[in-house]
């Protein structure tokens, strides 16, 4: 999980600040899970590399802001282009292979990305990370209050939802679903299956980059541990529990998965226990959903069940 846990948040922040913090994280995870849903839920491409694209977005923004003092909008533009290009680079070879092998190929890319971030010390700061990333500012106007940043995240989350909605609730989305269900049938109807797969992969990667930029500017310190394969699996969990193939499912999934563990704090558990319990909770939740409700809270599609036709 993304939040850098200090002591109890109540000691550090006021209740309002704390709530805004949770809402900002939810917003970032909505962007991540909605974009992964385009790949996994609608097109059937279960990618384990989403945290890698998220990380690329964060590092691009951090490095641009720190080294070149470039403004936020430039950072977000460059981050989207770069993570999208990387998506193209990964997608072209990976999408030639099928199902299980695609999952493994994205896993490999995830591992490579983490390794580069962790070991290219002179450029990325390695395990020490990149501290002191400036907050978002527009022409000298710094968006320092938390609620202003929350509004910015909200704006981007809504924008991403609108774009995704246009993509899925259209003939384009119908083609994606057809590819998910039966590639041969889609091809026989004249749909260029590989083109659509690569395109969606690039779009998903680019959107994940947006989340990375927001995260970097918000937290002001990034290191590679925020972008591990565990993070990818966390995003996948949001998509599955919320419901694959349903955009609102991803929104609800992000709310549940980010907010639910916070409730553990209120039952009076010591912080150390609560942190460990969270991992167990995620695992238990995922298993429970897989067994009792594989299509998630709002989903129409479940992985592996009646896949193909």
């Amino acid at each position: 999980m993304a939040a850098k846990q200090g002591k109890s948040p109540f000691e550090l922040l006021g209740l309002m600040e704390y709530l805004l913090h949770i809402l900002i994280l939810i917003g970032i995870y909505v962007i991540l899970s909605v974009s992964l849903n385009l790949l996994a839920g609608y097109t059937g491409l279960l990618s384990i590399a989403h945290a890698a694209f998220y990380g690329v977005g964060a590092y691009v923004a951090a490095l641009l802001a720190l080294r070149l003092h470039s403004p936020f909008l430039i950072n977000i533009f460059c981050a989207v282009i770069l993570s999208g290009l990387l998506g193209l680079l990964v997608g072209l070879p990976s999408l030639r292979i099928r199902d299980d092998y695609f999952v493994i190929a994205t896993f490999a890319f995830q591992v490579i990305t983490f390794s580069v971030l962790n070991n290219w010390v002179s450029f990325t700061g390695g395990p020490m990370g990149l501290p002191g990333i400036p907050p978002v500012s527009f022409g000298g106007l710094v968006l320092s209050p938390k609620w202003v940043f929350f509004l910015l995240v909200l704006l981007f989350a809504v924008l991403v939802l609108l774009i995704s909605w246009r993509l899925v609730a259209s003939p384009f989305g119908r083609v994606l679903k057809a590819i998910r269900e039966d590639e041969v049938f889609a091809a026989s109807l004249g749909k260029d299956v590989s083109y659509y797969k690569v395109l969606v992969f690039v779009v998903g990667a680019g959107i994940a980059g947006i989340a990375g930029v927001l995260y970097a500017h918000y937290i002001s310190f990034i290191d590679p541990t925020s972008f591990t394969v565990m993070e990818s699996i966390f995003i996948i969990s949001i998509v599955i529990i919320g419901g694959a193939g349903n955009l609102w499912g991803s929104v609800i999934g992000a709310v549940v998965m980010v907010a639910l563990p916070e409730l553990l704090r209120f039952v009076g558990l010591p912080n150390v226990v609560a942190a460990n319990l969270r991992q167990i909770l995620y695992g238990a939740l995922l298993v429970a959903f897989m067994m009792a409700r594989p299509q998630g809270l709002l989903g129409e599609y479940s992985f592996g069940k009646g896949g193909g036709r």
């Binding site: 003939p171 119908r174 679903k177 057809a178 269900e181 039966d182 041969v184 026989s188 749909k191 036709r309």
Partner: peptide, 19 residues
Amino acid sequence: FQDLRLIHRLSVLDNLLLS
């Protein structure tokens, strides 16, 4: 196709519109 390929989870109309 001999083994009838259609998208079962999509509606009848959607299968046609897809074509």
